[in-house]
Design a protein around this nucleic acid. Structure first.
Lengths: 350, 350
DNA sequence: TATTAGCACTCGTTATTTATGAGTGCTAAT
DNA sequence: ATTAGCACTCATAAATAACGAGTGCTAATA
């Protein structure tokens, strides 16, 4: 029998149901859940006293805590975690497959516009903040290189990737070149670089090409230009939208939490590096409170899903909100959106 | 003699000095300025009673107000306005000319990166929010058009403007075309469109070209493609950075003001349309409180300066902060930055 | 053995009361 | 025109009291 001194054990059926209901109730109301009103509201055939005993046990086990001695209980991170796990167990992701409707993004052919509309959509539907990590250009495969002349000593290099990403960069060239020569270079570069990822190109291909016996000054110049143009690509970008939603949540504006928010706005890199860790993982991932392993962010949760091009995971999307987040609503949203984005990008890069 | 019942008159020397000092003091401390401590701090050879009389006059004249009966005075919008006008009278903008140092932006050749670094710089130096309105693409002059093939039925149109803005847009074409044909089109379009603003091109040139007797199906197709590609350009974009700075200002987070902030974040268009009004004006403009004629934004001020390419005003930059803003610091910053941006863009579009 | 009723106690919340003090307006003297 | 003097105001802060939802514990109950 539970004697109140254990700190780890499996919850029985009833405890489990009650814990989940408490978390649910707290997510809804935002108020500490007390035994009397809770028993009443959820029509448990239990007396408040019994409920108190159970709550006491759940507290000892680390799922609940009291903000102060004589208040009701609120979930700890562990409590949320338990609730979320239960959610995920019963969550049938395939159910949503059929609903996937990409019309919202469909009209956009420009990749960066897609990023914007995905984050906007995530934030608007969830009423929290939406976030998207773009595919890392380094990992995307080059399809085409074109160089066009702007000035006698300035050219514009355009690189198009299979995903439809368009990189443009101006490069200053030291010698005079003609547009005809540049067209020549473009063909040469496209034929040599096409099919390789930017990463490979920067790490190996350029080197190989330079080592090539058939090389000429012209080709050297072409490679110089390409190398300069592609040098600073590589990092994926992060897009956040809907911070204002978080500012509308009273508990987030409260002194202590506000700083977390400001940190998120200021240092998008915090979120970026977290998302980067989850690109490779499969399916929905949820980070609750302290599970976001960053001392600058507290009281927040992140629901995230990777997205793929073909079978290759390339980026991630997510929703950021308070730990007291409506996971039940957000999880399917993120899941669904991740799949929609995967589908869209895959089709775009055929 | 001032009898306290007038509502409009010129301030005498002493009143003017005192009003400016009161505004200055309030900007510094954020606390209502009371007669006793103020006289002391600023070593006026006046008794508090006299100061009270003067304050009373200034209040009657609409420059000051009392948050409540027995509190000190705080400036009204009109008070800030008076202070700012005094500032601007003594402000020697040429003084800063020599300091202009564009190194900060220098390394960036990409126009959109420049926008980002300008807004970031403005917000970091001012500790408020920095904002920049990009040149309206419609008003920029086309320099070059290039079409390259992506798929058999998909082409990428690249338009470069004199300012160095690069517009790219994918276009689906219904008939098969070869890269050679596209190169042909590119030359044709560049020769016909170069030197005209996007606005002119969309409004007139396309029409004229279509009317041209020498027209051919090929040329029609080229025009179709260009028209599609340029169709959705035109609007200038707005860039805001440093909202978090505003959130760190206690008076802005206070319930009533917070909403102004959220509105600014949410509807960047508010700020955009305000800046657009000031593109054509000469030099620094300052909007204080209600002077920002938008019911959704209260308690904010905007310091803005247009910037030019050559002699043509094309955009504007600015700083947004609380009405209690450190104008003395922000005005030169915005002025200076406006000039730096003008210089840089002018040089870039030679 | 698990549940429950009963009860004293805790403590955040809200309302009320009571200083405190910086500030005001007014009047009369300088 | 300036100032000293004084009664008055009122936001702010601290102290006090009442409230009530909630707790832990004990002893009775099924």
């Amino acid at each position: 029998m539970p004697n109140g001194f254990e700190t780890e054990r499996i919850l029985d059926e009833r405890e489990s149901a009650i814990l989940n209901s408490i978390v649910y109730e707290y997510i809804e109301t935002g108020k500490a859940v007390g035994s009397r009103s809770f028993v009443q509201k959820y029509s448990f055939s239990l007396s408040p006293a019994t409920m108190r005993n159970i709550m006491y046990d759940l507290e000892r086990l680390g799922y609940l805590m009291q903000p102060h001695t004589s208040a009701g209980r609120i979930p700890t991170d562990k409590g949320y975690r338990y609730y979320v796990n239960s959610l995920l167990e019963n969550y049938d992701s395939s159910f949503h497959d059929m609903e996937i409707d990409e019309k919202i993004f469909q009209k956009e052919l420009q990749l960066d516009k897609i990023f914007e509309s995905v984050t906007r959509m995530l934030s608007m539907v969830s009423r929290y903040a939406g976030v998207m990590l773009s595919p890392k250009p380094d990992f995307t495969v080059l399809k085409l290189v074109e160089i066009i002349q702007l000035e006698s000593s300035e050219v514009l290099v355009i690189a198009v990737t299979r995903t439809g990403m368009i990189l443009t960069r101006k490069v200053i060239v030291s010698v005079r070149v003609t547009q005809d020569e540049l067209s020549e270079y473009s063909k040469y570069l496209t034929s040599e670089l096409c099919g390789y990822s930017l990463q490979e190109i920067k790490d190996n291909i350029f080197g190989e090409l330079r080592g090539d016996r058939k090389s000429s000054t012209n080709r050297e110049l072409a490679i110089d230009i390409a190398q300069l143009a592609l040098a600073e690509t590589g990092e994926s970008s992060i897009n956040i939208d809907g911070i204002e939603n978080l500012l509308r949540i009273p508990e987030m504006v409260e002194e202590s939490r506000l700083n977390s928010l400001l940190n998120i706005i200021e240092e998008k890199n915090i979120i970026k590096s977290i998302l980067e860790k989850h690109v490779e993982s499969e399916g929905i991932k949820i980070l609750i409170g302290e599970e976001i392993d960053n001392e600058k962010v507290t009281g927040c949760s992140l629901v995230t899903s990777p997205y793929k091009i073909g079978n290759k995971p390339v980026g991630a999307i997510g929703v950021i909100g308070p730990t007291r987040m409506d996971y039940e609503k957000v999880v399917p949203l993120v899941d669904y959106t991740g799949k929609a984005v995967s589908g869209l990008l895959t089709r775009m890069s055929k």
